[in-house]
């Protein structure tokens, strides 16, 4: 078990939890950048291991999109819509943490045991990845601001990538690039939408958008 690996995985997992704790959106954006950076480093490790150039391209792309572009978009976002951006949650902090703990426990339970056994030496990391996924989902459930939802989706994606890396399931570069392209488009669309939502609703909260009730 590699210490570096452990460190990076823990970073990703902790940022996921961090999303739940922090109340300032600028921190959220930075935390996502940190998380993505950890992912980039993980990918870079596997580039070092394989040495394939296409892998390097992927790493660069991920760095460009998930770290720089995302950070840029989110900080702009926070600056622009400061009064409208909310970071409140439905559950208070202790309750949130209890649920986070429960989800982590579930991720380590016998239900997911077969997944952890894919690469036995990485079992703990794999479980961590799954826990990260579940906690990211919880973020989307719990947080009222739409920024948190966007971050939730992205963090979910990061967790999956991490799991894939640890489980030895990384796909060929062309597919990675395709996925990155999708994420790029997704990021752009969500940021356009955010501004449209702000224009129409004057806030960036999910609770504002509840008129479709049937």
């Amino acid at each position: 078990m590699n210490m570096n690996l452990q460190f990076l995985a823990m970073t990703i997992f902790l940022t996921t939890i961090f999303f739940h704790i922090i109340r300032r959106n600028s921190y959220t954006a930075s935390a996502y950048a940190v998380q993505s950076l950890a992912v980039v480093l993980l990918l870079f490790r596997s580039f070092l291991a394989t040495g394939s150039l296409s892998m390097l391209l992927t790493v660069i792309l991920v760095l460009a999109i998930k770290v720089f572009l995302a950070l840029h978009l989110f900080s702009n976002f926070v600056k622009k819509y400061k009064p409208g951006v909310s970071a409140t949650a439905y559950l208070n902090l202790p309750l949130t943490l209890i649920v986070v703990a429960a989800l982590s426990a579930f991720a380590h339970s016998r239900v997911f045991a077969p997944l952890a056994a894919i690469v036995p030496e990485n079992a703990a990391l794999l479980s961590l990845g799954i826990a990260g996924m579940l906690i990211s989902l919880l973020l989307m459930v719990n947080r009222k601001g739409i920024l948190s939802q966007i971050i939730g989706v992205l963090s979910l994606e990061n967790s999956i990538v991490v799991f894939g890396l640890f489980a030895g399931l990384e796909q060929s570069a062309i597919l990675q690039i395709g996925i990155m392209f999708n994420i790029l488009v997704w990021l752009i669309i969500t940021s356009i939408f955010s501004s449209m939502i702000y224009r129409h609703f004057g806030a960036l909260e999910t609770a504002e958008m509840t008129s479709l009730k049937e």
Partner: peptide, 25 residues
């Protein structure tokens, strides 16, 4: 049943989470 469609997206994602965990369990 209509209350299920509460209009709140957080709720909807909770359904997905619950369905996932429930189905797994």
């Amino acid at each position: 049943a209509r209350k299920m469609q509460s209009g709140l997206i957080n709720m909807y994602i909770l359904y997905i989470l619950a369905a996932l965990l429930g189905a797994l369990y």
